[in-house]
């Protein structure tokens, strides 16, 4: 077994823009659930709205990068408003069901054959990333960093992705230390108490939903940039649940928990894959096919999510005393 390769792969996962995208989407969930107590099970929908908003405006309308970005962000704000208006006054579990339903609606709509010329239906869309890479300051070539190999494209997208994650994390950090964040944490525990103190709870919840949704939508764009392709099948409810796993792993009401969680999530997936495949190749494991090895990892994800929730709900970075489940 080639341990060096397995560890290099794991290291690659840590810094990969996909991990950054997971971290950002999970950070959005941290704002939603960790700080505001909003059970958003439709983060994949926000990601899809971002990715498709960006790619459709680029491909169908020929929009330049800033406009496409703006369209994606505005679309996700609208999506948040549509979700929030009917549900933010209801009990937490209603929001959960409505958000998961809305995310599926988005997925069905971008998959349907009736819109193939806009969305590419099941095949998705591709080659909308040129505007992004055109901005890259790196001349074509290879840029090895330690054991990791980047080329001009991957270096650019990696730097931008993590730059955005850091920026958003800083925003969340600042917000949660402000009086605004205090109101949000109050709402997470007891809306009526906060209402009785004269705060418009609905507005705060909506603001939190929009901010987390914007992060989700940005994450959705980042998710597509490395390959320059978007495919509807990636935006199912499982994506949302993986994000939840990453969030809960790191700590739901922490700023860097989502980053740490996303990294661990991908590293563990990569390591188990590498080790299992290595064992299969070397003939130590004969009862698994390589496809089954891949599936085994997701069984582990499910079990890990259960065990986390049961035994360490505050995650790695969280403080149990501040853990508030509504």
């Amino acid at each position: 077994m080639d341990f060096a390769a397995i560890f290099t792969n794991a290291l690659t996962e840590i810094v990969s823009p996909i991990t950054a995208s997971y971290a950002l989407a999970a950070l959005g969930l941290a704002v939603h659930f960790g700080y505001a107590g909003l059970l958003n099970f439709g983060q994949a929908g926000f990601m899809a709205v971002g990715a498709y908003g960006f790619s459709i405006s680029t491909l169908t309308f020929g929009a330049p990068l800033p406009v496409a970005l703006l369209v994606a962000l505005v679309a996700s704000v609208l999506f948040a408003l549509i979700l929030g208006i009917p549900t933010l006054r209801l009990r937490a579990d209603y929001l959960a069901i409505v958000t998961i339903a809305a995310a599926e609606i988005v997925r069905y709509i971008v998959t349907t054959n009736s819109l193939t010329n806009v969305t590419g239906s099941a095949n998705g869309l591709a080659t909308f990333e040129r505007g992004f890479y055109a901005l890259s300051p790196f001349p074509p070539g290879d840029y090895p960093v330690g054991p990791l190999n980047f080329n001009d494209r991957s270096l650019w997208v990696t730097l931008v992705a993590w730059g955005i994650v850091l920026l958003c994390a800083a925003i969340v950090w600042a917000l949660m230390r402000s009086p605004w964040g205090r109101v949000l944490k109050g709402i997470r525990e007891d809306e009526n108490a906060v209402l009785s103190l004269g705060k418009n709870v609905f507005v705060y919840k909506m603001e939190a939903l929009v901010i987390g949704g914007l992060f989700g939508s940005l994450a959705g764009i980042l998710f597509t940039l490395p390959t320059g392709a978007v495919q509807p099948a990636n935006y199912g409810s499982e994506l949302t649940f993986f994000l939840w796993t990453a969030l809960l792993l790191g700590g739901m009401a922490t700023v860097f928990g989502s980053v740490l969680g996303a990294m661990i999530f991908w590293v563990v997936l990569s390591l188990t894959q590498g080790i299992l495949l290595g064992l299969i190749e070397a003939g130590y494991i004969t009862f698994l096919s390589s496809a089954q090895a891949g599936q085994l990892r997701y069984i582990l994800v499910g079990v890990a999510l259960m065990l986390l929730m049961i035994f360490r709900p505050q995650g790695i970075l969280g403080n149990k005393k501040e853990l508030a489940f509504s």
């Binding site: 009086p179 205090r182 109101v183 944490k185 109050g186 997470r188 525990e189 007891d190 009526n192 108490a193 906060v194 009785s196 103190l197 005393k321 501040e322 853990l323 508030a324």
Partner: peptide, 15 residues
């Protein structure tokens, strides 16, 4: 209805 997961002083400031 006090916010158990906030400190006493934060509860007060919230008011």
């Amino acid at each position: 209805k006090v916010m158990g997961k906030l400190t006493v002083i934060e509860n007060m400031r919230l008011g």
